[in-house]
Structures are given as structure tokens and as C-alpha cells.
Amino acid sequence: MKKVTLILGAFLTLFMVSCEVNGVDGRDGFDGIDGIDGRDGLDGLDGQDAPLPKVIDVEGTFTLDNDYGIRHTFDDSIEVLETDVVLVYLLWDQADGSDGQPIDIWRLLPQTRLLDQGVLIYNFEHTFVDVDIFLEADFDLGTLAAGDTDNQVFRIAVLPAESTSGKSSVDKTSITSVMAYLGVEDKDVKKVQLK
């Protein structure tokens, strides 16, 4: 018990010595030079004038010249952060709607096809600057039919990190669910033709 009292007394003494009631305050330092104003950023997702989340349709052709890959670089109207989720869908087919209008059928990449030549994979990778969409196969890609390479349409959806960090979830395999979650309609989708 004497040891505990001795240790507690030592800490109390140290504490009292380190606290000065009538000590001298230090002088204020010099004000620094003001920095340069930065550019205004986009309004946040919670703002009333917040921009729509970005959904883009890109169309391109896979050839030997582009090494069976197409690249879409995000322009200044789209801010993609490193923490955002980028999803890419392939326009797989179209079905007849009850009103006579075609209904697009989209599939999330990567997407695998089993062909007579072997296995073909539509795949992608991205940064916050661009999206690369490319073909992978266990056979010579030069043997592919034009229907597998020419004028392929992909839908790129950028989910802001804020929308994916909460408890609510979205079925990312369904572009319809993703667009509904983001509040984007087909008329809002930007169209880009790649060379």
C-alpha cells in the first residue's frame, strides 16, 4: 500500500510542478503569406444542384491495329476519384418490347463467351483517368467474326464513393438497378464514338 501511495504522490507532484499558474505566455508568431485560391470544385452529392452521376455509352471496334482494345478517357465534365467504383457493361443483345421498341440487354464485364475457336473474354481495367476495354482469348483473335469485334457498345457507370459506402446496396450486375439507384435515365446517358 505504501508503494502505491508513494507512486501516486510522485505523479501528483510531477503534475503540479509542470503546471504553472503565473507563467509567461509565448508571443504570437508572424502571419504567413496568403496562398493562391484554387479552382471551384463540383457541388457534392448532397447539394441540390449536384451533378448527375455519370453514365456513358461508348462504341468502338476491336482490331489488330488497336491490339483488340479500346480506351475511353474521361473528359473534364466527369470527375472520377480513385475511390469511386467504375462498372462496364456490354450491350449483349436486344429484345422486342411490348410497345415495338427494342429493349437493350446489358451484361456486366468481365463477360466470357465459349466459341468454336475457344474461350473469348470481354474485360476491362480502369483508373480515375480512363477505362481500357479489351479482348482476351486462348486463340488467335484475328479469327473472330465481325459480330464479336465491330461496333461494340459498352455502358460505363461511375458510382461515387459516397454512394457505395453506406448501408444501402445496389445490384451491380444490373445496369437497370445501377441507373435507378443513381437516378439516371437513358436520355441522360452521354454517347461517345471511339476510333
Rank of each mutant, 00 (worst) to 15 (best):
D148Y: 14
L91R: 02
A146P: 11
S168A: 13
S163M: 13
N123D: 11
T127E: 08
L90V: 01
R107N: 08
L108N: 00
G97L: 02
V153Q: 02
L120T: 05
V131M: 10
R113S: 09
D104H: 06
F134C: 15
L141K: 10
S169A: 15
T112F: 10
V86E: 04
A95N: 02
L115W: 08
D138A: 01
E125F: 00
W106F: 01
D148K: 03
P160N: 04
G147C: 05
G118Q: 15
S169P: 13
Q101H: 06
D148V: 03
N123I: 05
P160Y: 03
F134H: 14
A95D: 04
W92H: 12
I103D: 03
I156W: 00
F139W: 15
S168E: 13
G166D: 09
N151R: 10
P102C: 01
V85I: 02
S163P: 03
T127H: 09
F128V: 13
R155W: 04
T149P: 07
L91F: 01
V158I: 09
L120D: 02
D116A: 09
L108M: 02
I156C: 03
I105F: 04
W106Y: 01
S169Q: 14
I121P: 07
T173L: 10
N151M: 08
L108Y: 02
V129S: 14
F139L: 11
Q94W: 05
V88L: 00
L109K: 00
S174A: 07
A161C: 05
L120F: 05
E125T: 06
L91D: 02
N123T: 08
T143L: 11
D116T: 15
A137C: 13
I156Y: 05
A146G: 11
P102D: 00
K167T: 14
I121C: 07
A145D: 15
N123S: 10
I103Q: 08
A137D: 07
Q117M: 11
S168H: 12
E125G: 07
A137W: 04
L144Y: 07
A157P: 06
E162S: 12
Q101L: 14
D171H: 07
N151L: 10
E162A: 13
L90A: 05
R155T: 08
P160E: 03
L91C: 00
L141F: 11
L120R: 00
D171L: 12
L159H: 07
I103G: 02
G166N: 12
H126W: 07
T173K: 14
L135T: 04
D130H: 11
T127Y: 13
I103Y: 03
W92V: 05
D84V: 01
L144S: 11
T149W: 06
L114V: 13
D148G: 02
